[in-house]
Each structure stands twice: as C-alpha cells, then as structure tokens.
C-alpha cells in the first residue's frame, strides 16, 4: 500500500488540478473565468505527460560523453518533452485567439456574463 501510494501520489495531484479546471469551466458564469479554468485543465495535461517521462535512474536527455548512449535507462524519455515543448507555445497562441474572441464579444454585447449574454443575443 505504501509502495502504491509513493508511486502514484503525483497522479493524484494532477487529477486534483484537472478537477479544479473542470469546476471552473462548468460552474463559473463569467466567460473569462471559464477561460482560466480551461488553461488550468491544459496545464494538468502537460504535467501528466512530463510525469510519465521520469526514470529514477536517469538524467536529462542531453548526451553525456562519459556515460555514452548505449544504455537507454540512463536518460529520461525525450519524446514526451519534445511533444509538450510545442504544446506549451501553441497553447499560448490559442489562448491569445480566445482572448481576442472575448474582446470581440465584449465590444458587441457589452457583457461577459453568460445568462445576460444569452438574453441579449435572443433580444437582438
């Protein structure tokens, strides 16, 4: 049991973060707060990928001339780091698009609250 908990506590923390992001997306009425929840959700996915790359016997994936490249257990897995490196920058760009959509909504309807926004969209 102790062994199981020591191997899995990082996953439980990541699940907590993901639930917080989902709470923000479902329960909050303001669109900007929904966007903050979506960003927290995204960060938890990135942390899950990075946590799955760890090897306790390994070091950073930059070749050490003394260690050589013959033993793959000496370096942590570089594939997840490569994928998440692009995912972070693309996440920044897409959140920029989301903020510009929010600004366009605010310019047109003068509100960001969900229920008020629905009323104004129906009446116009």
């Amino acid at each position: 049991m102790t062994d199981f908990f020591l191997g899995h506590y990082a996953y439980f923390g990541i699940i907590t973060l993901l639930i917080i992001g989902l709470y923000g997306m479902i329960f909050k009425k303001n669109l900007a707060k929904k966007l903050i929840g979506m960003t927290i959700f995204q960060v938890s996915i990135i942390m899950f990928y990075v946590a799955s790359a760890v090897k306790w016997s390994g070091t950073v994936p930059v070749l050490d001339p003394l260690a050589g490249a013959a033993d793959a257990a000496k370096y942590i897995s570089p594939l997840q780091h490569c994928l998440m490196l692009t995912a972070i920058v693309v996440g920044v760009a897409t959140s920029g698009v989301a903020f510009s959509l929010l600004i366009a909504i605010y310019r047109h309807y003068k509100t960001l609250d969900e229920s008020v926004l629905m009323d104004r969209m129906k009446s116009s």
């Binding site: 062994d3 199981f4 020591l6 191997g7 899995h8 990082a10 996953y11 439980f12 699940i15 993901l18 639930i19 989902l22 946590a51 799955s52 760890v54 090897k55 306790w56 016997s57 390994g58 793959a72 257990a73 897995s77």
Partner: peptide, 24 residues
C-alpha cells in the same frame, strides 16, 4: 463521477519512474 473515474483509471498506471514500465 468524472473524478472517481479518473482515480479508478490511475490504478492501472505503472509507478512513476519505473524503468521497466511499458513506455520505456
């Protein structure tokens, strides 16, 4: 229920940092 499903699914994951995990 979504949180409970995720916790149940995490029981099937290998220990973090295990060199003999399926991924490595």
């Amino acid at each position: 229920s979504f949180g409970a499903l995720l916790v149940y699914a995490s029981f099937g994951l290998p220990n973090r940092g295990d060199v003999s995990a399926n991924m490595h």
